[in-house]
C-alpha cells in the first residue's frame, strides 16, 4: 500500500547505507574525514594479501558460529549460549592438544572432533535446561559465564604454563597440534576448507533434508509440528547440538590458528557477533556468509583506522552496532515478507 516497494529489494543494503551515513556524521563530529576513515577501513581489511588473509582468518570462526545459528534459529531457538559453545570448543581442542601428541593430520582431526563434541555438549545442556523450563536465553547466558569461569580455572590451574599461571593462557601447543598457516598471517587453508564444508552442509540440511523441514515446522509452529509428528524434544536437542558443534569448531579454529594456545578471552564476543550477523542477514542462508564477511572486514579494517586517525578505538564496533540497531528498527522479516509479497502482487497486475 503506502510502503515503498523498492525497500525490501535493497535489504540489507538500506540499513547499511543509513548506518554509513550515521557513522559519517559521527566521524565529522570527531573532526575526521569520512572518506579518509572508510578508506582506512578498506585498506585495513583488503590493503594487501596479508590483510585480506587476516580478515578471512577472523571471518572463519565468525562464519562457523553464524552457520550454527541458522540451524538453531530455524528451529525457533534463541541460542545465545553460542558464545559459551564457542569457548567450550576451544577448550575441547586445547584438551586434546595438551594431552596427546600424534601425527599432525590425526592430531588436528581429533582436536576438531573434540571441539565439536564439547560445543555440542554445552549446547545440549542448554537444550536439556530448556526442557526443564529454563528458557534457552537464560540458560545460555549462564552457561556462557560458566564457560569463561572454566577457561580461567584451566589456564590458572591444571593447564597453567610451566613458568607459572599468569591468567594469560596455556603454554603454546606443540607444532603438530596447530593448523598450518599461510605466511605471517593467521589464515589457515584447512580452516577455510572446513568453513566452506560447513556451509555446504548447512545449506543441504536446511534446503534439502527432512530434518531441516522438521526444524522449519518446529520453528514456525511447535504445536502444529507436534501434531504432524515432529518431536520437539529431539529436534531441539539436535538443533542445539548441531549449532554447538559448529560453534565449537569455530572455537577450535580460533585456538589452533588465530592463537596458539588457550587464552583468557578466547572468543572475545564472536558468538554474540554471530547473533548480530544472522539477524542482520535476516536468517537467510546466502546472506549470512556475506554479512559475516562484512563484519569481519569492518572490524579488521578498524585496526588500521585507529592507527591512521588515532580516533576512538571502537569505531568499528560502533559501525556494526549501529547497523544491527537499524536493522531492528527497520522491522522484522515478517513485515518485510509482507511488503515483498505486496510488491510482487502489484507488479504482476500492472
Amino acid at each position: 500500500m503506502s510502503r515503498p516497494a523498492w525497500l525490501p529489494r535493497l535489504w540489507p543494503l538500506l540499513p547499511s547505507f543509513v548506518a554509513l551515513l550515521l557513522t559519517s556524521l559521527l566521524l565529522l563530529a570527531f573532526g575526521a574525514s569520512p572518506p579518509l576513515a572508510f578508506g582506512a577501513i578498506w585498506e585495513g581489511a583488503f590493503g594487501n594479501q596479508d590483510r585480506l588473509l587476516t580478515t578471512v582468518a577472523f571471518w572463519i570462526p565468525l562464519m562457523l558460529s553464524s552457520l550454527g545459528l541458522l540451524i538453531s534459529f530455524r528451529a525457533g531457538l534463541w541460542n545465545i549460549g553460542i558464545e559459551g559453545q564457542f569457548i567450550l570448543g576451544a577448550i575441547g581442542a586445547s584438551w586434546v592438544a595438551l594431552s596427546l601428541q600424534l601425527p599432525a593430520p590425526l592430531q588436528i582431526s581429533l582436536q576438531m572432533l573434540a571441539a565439536m563434541a564439547a560445543g555440542a555438549l554445552w549446547a545440549g545442556l542448554a537444550g536439556v535446561l530448556k526442557r526443564w523450563g529454563v528458557h534457552e536465553i537464560f540458560g545460555g547466558l549462564a552457561l556462557n559465564n560458566l564457560a569463561i569461569i572454566l577457561t580461567n580455572y584451566l589456564i590458572a590451574g591444571p593447564w597453567q604454563p610451566p613458568e607459572g599461571g599468569s591468567f594469560r593462557g596455556t603454554a603454546p601447543f606443540h607444532a603438530d597440534a596447530l593448523l598450518p598457516l599461510v605466511g605471517a598471517t593467521r589464515f589457515s587453508v584447512v580452516a577455510l576448507g572446513l568453513a566452506l564444508l560447513a556451509f555446504g552442509l548447512v545449506v543441504l540440511a536446511l534446503r534439502n533434508s527432512a530434518w531441516g523441514l522438521r526444524l522449519k515446522a518446529l520453528g514456525r509452529n511447535p504445536r502444529s509440528a507436534l501434531l504432524l509428528g515432529v518431536s520437539s524434544r529431539r529436534e531441539t536437542l539436535l538443533a542445539m547440538a548441531f549449532c554447538g558443534a559448529l560453534a565449537g569448531l569455530g572455537g577450535a579454529v580460533r585456538v589452533l590458528s588465530w592463537f596458539d594456545s588457550l587464552r583468557q578471552s578466547i572468543s572475545g564476543g564472536i558468538g554474540y557477533l554471530a547473533l548480530m550477523v544472522v539477524i542482520l542477514a535476516a536468517f537467510r542462508l546466502l546472506w549470512t556468509p556475506l554479512v559475516a564477511f562484512f563484519f569481519a572486514a569492518v572490524l579488521s579494517g578498524s585496526v588500521v583506522l585507529q592507527l591512521r586517525t588515532q580516533l576512538h578505538s571502537s569505531l568499528g564496533n560502533i559501525l556494526t552496532g549501529v547497523l544491527v540497531l537499524l536493522v531492528l528498527l527497520f522491522g522484522n522479516l515478517d513485515s518485510l515478507r509482507a511488503w515483498w509479497a505486496e510488491w510482487r502482487a502489484g507488479r504482476r497486475r500492472s
Binding site: A210, L213, K216, A217, N221, R223, S224, L228, G229, V230
Partner: peptide
C-alpha cells in the same frame, strides 16, 4: 487448523514431506 495442525509459511508439498 493453523494454530494446531498446519504450519503457516509451509507449502502443501512441504507438509507432505514432513509427514
Amino acid at each position: 487448523r493453523l494454530e494446531e495442525g498446519l504450519v503457516s509459511g509451509m507449502t502443501l508439498s512441504e507438509h507432505m514431506a514432513l509427514v
